Amino acid sequence: MALDRSETLNSLGFPKPPSETRVVVAMSGGVDSSVVAAELAREGYDVIGVTLQLYDHGAALAKKGACCAGIDIHDARRVAEEMGFPHYVLDYENIFRDAVIDEFADSYLAGATPVPCIRCNERVKFKDLLETARDLDADCMATGHYIQRKMGVNGAELHMAADQARDQSYFLFSTTPEQLSYLRFPLGHLESKAETRALAQKHGLTVADKPDSQDICFVPDGNYASVIEKLRPGAADPGEIVHADGRVLGAHKGVIHYTIGQRRGLGIGGLDEPLYVVKLDVDAKQVVVGPKDMLATRQVPVREINWLGDAPLTSQPEWHVSVRVRSTRPPAEAVIRPLSDTDATVELLSPEEGVSPGQACVFYETGGSRVLGGGWIWRGY
Results as ranks from 00 to 15, higher is better:
294 M>T: 06
91 D>A: 04
190 L>K: 10
44 G>Q: 03
364 Y>I: 07
322 S>P: 00
327 S>I: 02
118 I>T: 02
367 G>P: 07
282 V>Q: 10
69 A>F: 07
8 T>S: 13
330 P>A: 10
257 H>R: 15
277 V>C: 09
235 A>F: 05
328 T>L: 10
23 V>W: 11
219 V>A: 10
231 L>H: 05
381 Y>C: 01
130 L>C: 03
29 G>Q: 02
79 V>N: 06
5 R>K: 13
65 G>F: 09
190 L>T: 06
145 H>K: 09
244 A>N: 13
17 P>A: 07
231 L>E: 15
357 P>A: 06
79 V>S: 04
17 P>F: 00
218 F>G: 11
328 T>M: 07
136 L>R: 10
34 S>D: 02
377 I>S: 04
108 Y>W: 05
273 E>D: 12
281 D>G: 01
49 G>K: 08
38 A>M: 06
64 K>V: 14
279 K>W: 11
335 V>P: 01
131 E>R: 12
282 V>W: 09
1 M>W: 12
198 A>I: 00
55 Y>G: 01
120 C>F: 11
76 A>F: 01
360 A>H: 07
41 A>P: 00
31 V>S: 06
91 D>N: 12
166 R>N: 11
244 A>W: 14
308 L>Q: 10
167 D>V: 08
299 Q>L: 13
84 G>E: 01
17 P>K: 07
314 T>Y: 04
345 T>N: 14
201 Q>K: 14
370 R>S: 04
191 E>M: 11
35 V>S: 06
317 P>V: 10
349 L>E: 14
263 R>V: 01
204 G>L: 01
235 A>T: 09
272 D>A: 14
101 I>G: 02
164 Q>V: 13
28 S>I: 02
154 N>K: 15
244 A>M: 15
167 D>R: 08
345 T>R: 15
102 D>N: 15
164 Q>T: 10
158 L>A: 11
198 A>Q: 07
80 A>L: 03
284 A>L: 08
227 V>W: 14
26 A>W: 04
269 G>A: 12
290 G>I: 04
13 G>S: 03
353 E>C: 08
159 H>W: 15
348 L>E: 08
359 Q>H: 15
363 F>K: 08
82 E>Q: 15
241 I>T: 10
344 A>T: 03
78 R>A: 05
14 F>I: 09
324 R>G: 00
217 C>E: 13
328 T>F: 06
51 T>W: 10
31 V>G: 06
280 L>S: 03
183 L>A: 06
313 L>D: 05
102 D>S: 13
291 P>V: 02
322 S>F: 00
337 R>P: 00
